[in-house]
Write a protein that binds this DNA or RNA. Structure first.
Ligand SMILES: Nc1ncnc2c1ncn2[C@H]1C[C@H](O)[C@@H](COP(=O)(O)OP(=O)(O)OP(=O)(O)O)O1
Ligand SMILES: [Mg+2]
Ligand SMILES: [Mg+2]
Ligand SMILES: [Mg+2]
Length: 581
DNA sequence: ATACATACC
DNA sequence: TACTGGTATGTAT
């Protein structure tokens, strides 16, 4: 049932997947974590059942209408296609592990993972042969590979290597966008034209320079847009490159048989829900567009169709405007041995408040919304938020709000607590004050971007609006297309030395392996990772549940707001017209 | 504005 | 024995 560790990732060719599945199962069953995974899987199964039911209720007439609507959407998307750009996605091979091998070459021939018995962030390709992977707990990895060597993470190495790699990227695209420490997206069109080179030529050059100057290998994907270059970058890992021809036949050839899971944004859940309707390769997203339109939101459909057509971002995002904070949130969370005593819980909240305040101070951030995250010992998640009337940043203010949110949840037994601040005050840039562009990084995480990559969503209920209606509404002209009113210039901030949540209320009537943390480095990207989601469903609530991740740094950033995608012209959306209701 | 789910590195 | 931490987005309420 758990397909997480055997899917869609480089280095898994030739791995005995059945064996890996069995070991993971044997090591996990009976654990609270496993129970939680089962609970989540049940949710997915129920979701699929509801979608099947909905699909069953779609008449031939409905289907015909939905299909026509999607035909129009496809036709429009097709008009946005721009094959004139050349994009490169560069992604380091087994990045953290490779950095560790740099300082300890003996590790190169041994199976090695970066992390500990609790969690692994990545493994070298020798270890991957045994099924060892990112996000796999170390004790399971050791069961799969008893000789596995564990290396402790050392973020300063990774940031140094990343910085060095970015110096290279800047030579080919001064505005490249960083997808993470180990990945970047480059529009090398101008460079190619100026030097009479192909994308493949530049890819070869970058790979050579990376070997020589950074002493690490990377893989490069080349294509007419960022979606294609990104997917292509994984095709010949490690130390390889792959070119998606910049013509319609070449793109169709590449995309048609591509497993949907390879598309960034389609993960474990979307893969399952789509598979339930026979969609396992990207061509299926186009073949079943009518039916899918009856099951997924307009936003998801835009994303699916763009993916099926091989359309992606063709231009970089707008840089972050002056004074704007380049991020949406900042958070700190820690896992520890189970605790439930009031004193211990409050002590954790205080520590996190201090940590968060410190990180915010490093960037001069002040925010209004504080979200407390609690992971129960059962692995179920709870988040509770409060928005203050004033921007806050001090330890005292953060602690006050955090404690109040926490106290409302007790009693509770948890294994993790986290604090996240969002809704930031814009930073007033003082004359002569240069922001931290220290970390070679151009194009700050902007917002609007031309191109097509879109997101997905989740689940919902809204039975009042038929899906057909939603898709029809989505087809209306986009009114907010020509202006960017959002100026948010500012009213001077009211001052108040100390914030108290009580005032607001009145006014309104372990054990953590914290080895994987890193200094808050400037970072950004515009990686537009979709989040799938089915549509409506007459459904009720969801439970909670976990996410994944490792102690990484900042990475993704901005996403585009809404609407359809577009090559880069982004004219309004034509009216597709409603299908039969 | 709040809560939850999904996704990516 | 043991299952991360950080960031983003989409939807419903
Ligand atoms: N789930 C995770 N949790 C924490 N850190 C992660 C996680 N996944 C990846 N990382 C870190 C470690 C990786 O070396 C680094 C880059 O990720 P990624 O490019 O996906 O894999 P990789 O570089 O290790 O191997 P590959 O050769 O497949 O690219 O980010
Ligand atoms: Mg990588
Ligand atoms: Mg990567
Ligand atoms: Mg994917």
């Amino acid at each position: 049932m758990n397909t997480v560790f055997t899917n869609a990732k480089a280095g898994m060719a030739g791995v005995d997947k059945e064996h890996v599945q069995k070991v993971v199962y044997e090591m996990s069953k009976n654990s609270p974590h496993f129970k939680n995974e089962q609970r989540k899987q049940k949710q997915t199964d129920e979701r699929i059942a509801k979608m099947k039911q909905r699909a069953h209720g779609i008449s031939q007439t409905d289907l015909a209408g939905l299909t026509r609507s999607m035909d129009a959407k496809v036709a429009h998307l097709e008009t946005t296609r721009d094959l004139s750009r050349t994009w490169l996605t560069v992604d380091m091979d087994a990045f953290f592990a490779a950095c560790e091998e740099l300082d300890n070459p003996a590790l190169k021939t041994q199976p090695m993972a970066v992390g500990g018995i609790g969690m692994i962030s990545t493994a070298n390709y020798v270890a991957r042969k045994y099924g060892v992977r990112s996000a796999m707990p170390g004790f399971i990895a050791r069961e799969l590979c008893p000789q596995l060597v564990f290396a402790k993470p050392n973020f300063s190495k990774y940031t140094a290597a990343s910085r060095a790699s970015r110096v290279i990227f800047a030579d080919y695209d001064a505005e490249f966008s960083a997808g993470s420490l180990d990945e970047a997206h480059l529009d090398v069109t101008d460079y190619c034209n100026q030097h009479g080179l192909s994308g493949a030529d530049v890819a070869e050059t970058i790979r050579r320079r990376m070997r020589e100057e950074v002493k690490l290998t990377c893989s490069v994907g080349v294509g007419p847009n960022r979606l294609l270059s990104k997917v292509a970058a994984d095709m010949n890992k490690p130390d390889g490159q792959y070119v998606v021809a910049a013509d319609l036949p070449g793109i169709k050839r590449f995309v048609a048989a591509l497993p949907i899971r390879k598309v960034p944004g389609i993960g474990k859940v979307a893969e399952q829900t789509l598979a339930a309707f026979g969609v396992t390769a990207c061509q299926g997203l186009l073949d079943h567009k009518g039916l899918l339109a009856g099951l997924y939101s307009p936003i998801s459909m835009d994303f699916f169709l763009a993916s099926g057509l091989g359309l992606g971002q063709t231009q970089h995002s707008e840089p972050v405007a002056d004074g704007e904070v380049g991020r949406k949130g900042i958070s700190c969370e820690r896992t520890f041995g189970p605790i439930s005593k009031t004193g211990e819980l409050e002590a954790k909240a205080c520590e996190l408040a201090e940590k968060l305040a410190e990180e915010m101070a490093d960037e001069g951030l002040k925010g209004k919304t504080l979200t407390l995250k609690l992971k129960e010992t059962t692995f179920e998640l709870r988040t509770r938020a409060h928005t203050s009337s004033q921007f806050i940043s001090s330890v005292a203010d953060i602690r006050n709000v955090a404690l109040r949110l926490l106290r409302a949840e007790m009693p509770i037994a948890i294994r993790l607590m986290g604090l996240r601040m969002s809704s930031f005050q814009e930073i007033r840039t003082l004359p002569g004050q240069r922001s931290l562009s220290a970390f070679i990084q151009p194009a700050a995480a902007g917002s609007a971007t031309a191109g097509t990559e879109q997101p997905l969503k989740q689940q919902g209920a809204a039975q009042d609006f038929s899906i057909a209606f939603q898709h029809a509404v989505d087809a209306l002209p986009d009114e907010s297309e020509d202006e960017e009113p959002e100026d948010a210039n500012g009213a001077p901030e009211p001052h108040q030395s100390s914030y108290s949540m009580a005032d607001d209320l009145q006014a309104q009537s372990g054990r953590s392996e914290d080895k994987w943390r890193e200094a808050p480095l400037p970072q950004q990207s515009d990686l537009a990772a979709p989040r799938i989601a089915e549509l409506p469903s007459t459904d009720l609530q969801q439970s909670c549940t976990g996410s994944v991740g490792f102690g990484q740094f900042a990475a993704q950033k901005r996403k585009r707001p809404s609407g359809a995608v577009t090559g880069h012209k982004r004219t309004g959306i034509e009216a597709y017209l409603r299908p039969a209701a």
